[in-house]
């Protein structure tokens, strides 16, 4: 990967990642996250992992973040009032972040030890066929378990949403539901 591409891209990626954390506005945070995910996808492309790059954009930038943004704009949150008022929470968040960063640095610094030349990748690396064979062969059990986990999360969300009883409970949540229910049939 040419340094001419790498460094500007890395700068944009880190700047948008910082933007996610530092931005006061939740919509801006979410958009920064989209930008960071997009930059990561471009990195994947340069690392020959085309399928992973495409999936990154389809799943994270295209689906997950759209839903995030949808909810944020629907609730029209004005500003970030969560963590600023709870110093304990932000302290815990900081410690967790520092731990993850430290372990990442430790793991990566051993991977790029001085003198090591890296690995020569096979021609088929990152192609759909190879990745699919790994995903649905070697890691099939983990893959299926993850999908079950996601299913459990979906069912749990539905159950939690239903527990409130009627739609009339919360004015803001009721608006979109009522719109479709009250329309004349």
């Amino acid at each position: 990967m040419s340094p001419l591409v790498f460094y500007p891209l890395a700068f944009v990626c880190i700047a948008s990642a910082m933007g996610v954390v530092l931005s006061k506005n939740p919509v801006r945070s979410a958009l920064c996250l989209v930008s960071a995910l997009f930059c990561l996808a471009i990195f994947y492309v340069f690392l020959q992992a085309h399928l992973v790059a495409a999936l990154q954009i389809i799943v994270y930038a295209g689906a997950v973040m759209v839903l995030f943004l949808f909810v944020i704009t629907l609730l029209n949150l004005e500003s970030d009032r969560g963590l600023g008022e709870r110093p304990a929470l932000s302290g815990i968040g900081f410690c967790a972040g520092a731990f993850v960063a430290a372990s990442l640095v430790a793991a990566l610094s051993s991977a790029v030890a001085p003198g090591s030349r890296g690995v020569v990748l096979p021609q088929t690396f990152g192609t759909t066929k190879v990745l699919a064979r790994q995903l649905f062969g070697d890691y099939l059990v983990a893959f299926e378990l993850t999908s079950v986990l996601l299913l459990v999360a979906v069912v749990g969300a539905v159950v939690l949403a239903k527990r409130d009883g009627s739609y009339e409970g919360d004015e803001q949540d009721a608006a979109p539901a009522r719109q479709s229910e009250e329309a004349p049939h």
């Binding site: 495409a54 999936l55 954009i57 930038a61 759209v66 943004l69 949808f70």
Partner: peptide, 25 residues
């Protein structure tokens, strides 16, 4: 010419929402 050209198209189609969300917000 990508070997995942099809996914490239679906990925970009799914990004079309952002213009609308951003404009509205």
């Amino acid at each position: 010419n990508l070997d995942v050209g099809f996914l490239y198209i679906t990925a970009l189609v799914s990004l079309g929402v952002y213009g609308i969300v951003l404009a509205g917000w």
